[in-house]
Design a protein around this nucleic acid. Structure first.
Lengths: 237, 237
DNA sequence: GTGTGTCAACTAACATGTTAGTCGAAAATT
DNA sequence: AATTTTCGACTAACATGTTAGTTGACACAC
């Protein structure tokens, strides 16, 4: 089995906070960017040498990643990057759908002028970015759109919770090739969600959000056969 | 500030697995049972002495509890049991509602004979336990009822996820006094959810589950004024 | 009495040493 | 040749030593 290439780890200098947190973020970034590919084994000592610190913060970081399901720790034996699992991805999708739909519903019911204005501005930016072909910027604005909706619920930790529960999806997402007209499709779906919220039509906001979230899963499904090397063979995790 | 009474910690002998896991479960149980009251400071060394082991597994356990929001770690200073927070409880309630409602909806749409039978049996048991006045057993059966519904989704980690996201609620729940007819109320609500699922009426299953989950929050709201000593003063966590 | 500065005690964070379990490859047996 | 056994290298888990940051009490000035 291949080993994780520790040179892909970003330095910790530009991060702040406790060492363990910085290691956690650095390793997590590497895993999410697939610089540490699914299935690769992680050697703590390599990371320690690379970053110039002891095993304590590295162990703590990996333990945290383990609880999130991003790495598998084999007791007394080794640690490796968790393989992708279509079962886990589908579970992510279910959880995300439930939460984002609830948020959209709430946004429509309790919509404020300010929220509508923020969403409207966000959509304008999305349009511009499609025109410019700025894929990465679009992705970021896309996420901001969803966050804005979630924030209307007043549930502060909703965005981070959804993110934490969607890690398998988020990792697999990076494998998707940009499809022609894909961004335009997204924008259109966003517009429908926006319209429903603006008109305070909760049930339409729910179904529009549901369709939007489900489309991503549909795009992910083919990955299992396209990249079997990155997926675990077992059914469940 | 009071200190956590480590003698309330159950011994680890009857648990299995790595030490850190056992400590984690023991401390978590103590916190959830309010044997470690909200606001109490936790001294690692006391726990080490009490359990006869070193700081490593204890630190790991507390770190995990910290990510779950059950303890607050003050860097270089101390660790304490997180106070209850009505804001956090409301957030829990939102997340739980979203997920349990989605599960109920799914259960109604994709209901199987086996599920209906299991739920029916469960309700019979609930009736018996009310007749016997077996509060604790009822609680357990109550939880099994919800779990059965969640399991129909095929999302293996749904029950544990809901549980993890409801920890503030679960802790506060222990402070509730049993109210007269409370159990009967619950049973009635369960029956409505069951009927809707049996009849494959998804939208009724959703609203019945929603009402059921919201009632718990209503019962929790008064706690903040009744037991201000256990709640944090700040608005958000 | 009130505000401020100093300092000692305590703590989490980090480093490092030790133990014991796991795995795979070579050796021994069939 | 195929299977089992043995054994050594490697690892996470745990113990313990060290560092550095925080806190709160006390003394002091105002």
């Amino acid at each position: 089995m291949s080993q994780a290439d520790v040179t892909k780890l970003q330095s910790l200098n530009h991060l702040n906070g406790p060492l363990a947190d910085r290691v956690y973020r650095a390793v997590k970034t590497a895993i999410m960017h697939l610089d540490f590919p699914p299935g690769a084994s992680i050697r703590k000592t390599s990371i320690c040498e690379r970053l110039g610190l002891s095993r304590s913060p590295v162990s703590e970081a990996l333990a945290k990643l383990s609880t999130e399901g991003l790495v598998d720790i084999m007791p007394q034996s080794g640690t490796r990057v968790a393989r992708l699992s279509m079962a886990a991805i589908r579970e992510d999708a279910f959880l995300r759908e439930a939460l984002e739909v609830a948020a959209a519903s709430h946004a429509a019911k309790a919509r404020s002028e300010e929220t509508v204005a923020r969403l409207s501005r966000n959509l304008e930016m999305q349009k511009l970015m499609i025109a410019d072909g700025a894929q990465d910027d679009f992705m970021e604005t896309d996420m901001a759109f969803h966050e804005t909706i979630m924030e209307t619920t007043g549930v502060t930790r909703l965005p981070s919770t959804v993110n934490a529960l969607s890690q398998h999806v988020n990792r697999a997402r990076r494998l998707l090739l940009p499809e022609p007209g894909g961004l335009k499709n997204s924008l259109e779906e966003h517009n429908k969600i926006y319209d429903a919220i603006r008109q305070q039509d909760a049930s339409e906001a729910e179904s529009a959000m549901r369709r939007h979230v489900r489309r991503l899963l549909q795009r992910l499904e083919p990955l299992e056969t396209a990249r079997p090397d990155l997926f675990s063979t077992e059914e469940a995790r």
